[in-house]
Design a protein around this nucleic acid. Structure first.
Length: 463
RNA sequence: UCCCCGAUAGCUCAAUGGUAGAGCGAGCGGCUGUUAACCGCUAGGUUCUAGGUUCGAGUCCUAGUCGGGGAGCCA
């Protein structure tokens, strides 16, 4: 007796095999002809396998006829060609063993559709739905693509720390990490006495592994990080999480153009793999979540990403004839409405904006010869907006130090970072990509809270 | 954090300031190689919380909580 998955049982090559299947019942349909149909799902694929359970089963009346949505079972039987439409195969049950019942009066996941908002309140049960099963599989697929893409290009997978002591990396508000009893925080005068805290200094959850990735890129060439990232911003939008997963490649001897080429190939690879490896899930998203998702992804695959300098983007916006809520002027940070116009209306394909004004970008970005702009890039995609932010890093010690001083930073905590420029400095580049942002455009899901198993947002850390 | 909208049965939603309803789901019965099955019946409610106005509040007012849309911050 072979134990197989629902995914295998649905394939025609399984016909004729005696098998064992284990999973959860999605629905039961009874026939007065003396049998019932069970739809069994085990999470291995979008589809269910239809189980034919006849009244001759010894526990037909006592068990089978009481099975409902959510019950867990082991079924043994013969895989046959299905005589009816809707599936290639079905399993004629020889034995049905019930492991756990799911009381239909109280089990929240019933056959009828529920809203995403409701399912979010039952995050421990929502993976049992079609939608969240598909999201979980596509998320897994994207994670695998990320590793495959970089590993095939000889990048080194680098584990950067979750806890960090540098408090001004310039990427948003940080969560504090402490072992202090918050009712009795030690003080020296008005100041908190961090010497007695666990790390002897203020510590935080990381907002980026970039600076540490630079250390390894400047020794081993090409590296990438892929891990959780934390932002304590009070952001209440469908595109922000307090805890999310970020991919950050960092490459020695890459200039900004190399960086852009890599970013474009990277995004296209993730899309290709999702379409190739999760065709049923992608079809489900197309039919039930977002009618445009497949055509949008195929369009991105076919398109060459437009590379547009910030200064030219400003010109395009000024000459667009559009009425923007926020007036356009060289030097401003582009607003969502401006980005949407460029990528969705004007060019209708992904746009890589680069060479941003120096004043609106962080200290570590490489200053251009004009002295006014830096080698920053943002990748904008239609529908989702910014999914990648990156730059060529400033490798010249004197320019970097001046940058930091101009931004009012203290150089002392960054001596290790400056050492990378003091000793054997190299031009290098990198970017950050938010996994959940990618999943938004990959699946067509509308809210980022529904593409991560357990979302953490302001006021919510349930489960 | 700011602006706008919402919260009523397990779920999705109705209900001029005057007796809280429907569809779906669930239970029971019927029918059928069924497949978002179909037909009939039944049960199901502290109308988000706390105050207030009123003879009377699901409905009006105030505050709060949670959710949605938009904006900012960004990935």
């Amino acid at each position: 007796m072979e134990r197989i998955s629902v995914a295998q049982a649905r394939k025609e090559e399984s016909i004729g095999k005696e098998v064992q299947l284990q999973g959860w019942v999605r629905t039961r349909r009874d026939s007065k002809g003396g049998f019932s149909f069970l739809e069994l799902n085990d999470g291995t694929c979008q589809g269910n396998v239809q189980i034919l359970a006849e009244a001759t089963l010894p526990n037909y009346e006592t068990d089978v006829k009481k099975l409902g949505t959510g019950a867990s079972v082991t079924v043994t039987g013969l895989v046959k060609q299905s005589p009816a439409k809707g599936q290639a195969t079905e399993v004629q049950a020889k034995n049905v063993t019930v492991h756990g019942w799911a009381d239909a009066e109280t089990y929240p996941i019933q056959k009828k559709g529920a809203t995403m908002e409701f399912l979010r309140t039952v995050s421990h049960l929502r993976p049992r739905t079609n939608t969240f099963g598909a999201v979980a599989r596509v998320r897994n697929c994207a994670s695998r693509s990320i590793h495959d893409f970089f590993q095939e290009r000889d990048f080194l997978y680098l584990h950067t720390p979750i806890i960090t002591a540098s408090d001004c990396e310039g990427a948003g508000e940080l969560f504090k990490v402490t072992t202090f009893d918050l009712d009795k925080v030690p003080r020296q005068g008005p100041q908190i006495d961090f010497h007695s805290d666990f790390f002897s200094k203020p510590a935080f959850l990381t907002v980026s592994g970039q600076l540490q990735a630079e250390i390894f890129a400047c020794a081993l060439g090409k590296v990438y990080t892929f891990g959780p990232t934390f932002r304590a911003e009070n952001s209440n939008t469908p595109r922000h999480l307090a805890e999310f997963w970020m991919v950050e490649p960092e490459m020695a001897f890459y200039d900004l153009n190399d960086n852009m080429t890599l970013a474009e190939a990277f995004i296209k690879r993730i899309i290709q793999d999702a379409l190739a490896r999760c065709p049923d899930d992608m079809k489900f998203f197309q039919e039930r979540i977002d009618k445009e998702v497949l055509s949008r992804l195929e369009h991105i695959l076919k398109s060459e990403f437009l590379r547009l300098p910030y200064t030219e983007a400003i010109e395009v916006l000024l000459q667009s004839g559009e009425q923007f809520e926020f007036p356009v002027k060289w030097g401003i940070d582009l607003q969502t409405e401006h980005e949407r116009y460029l990528t969705e209306k004007k060019f209708q394909r992904p746009v890589i904006l680069f060479d941003y004004p120096r004043a609106i970008k962080p200290f570590y970005m490489r200053v251009n010869d004009d002295g006014k702009t830096v080698r920053a890039m943002d990748v904008l995609v239609p529908g989702v907006g910014e999914i990648i932010g990156g730059s060529q890093r400033e490798e010249r010690l004197d320019v970097l130090e001046q940058n930091m001083k101009d931004k009012g930073m203290s150089l002392e905590p960054y001596q290790w970072y400056l050492d990378l420029r003091r000793f054997g400095t190299v031009p290098h580049s990198g970017f950050g990509l938010g996994l959940e942002r990618v999943l938004l455009f990959l699946t067509g899901m509308a809210n980022i809270r529904d593409v991560i198993p357990f979302p953490r947002t302001p006021g919510n850390a349930e489960f």
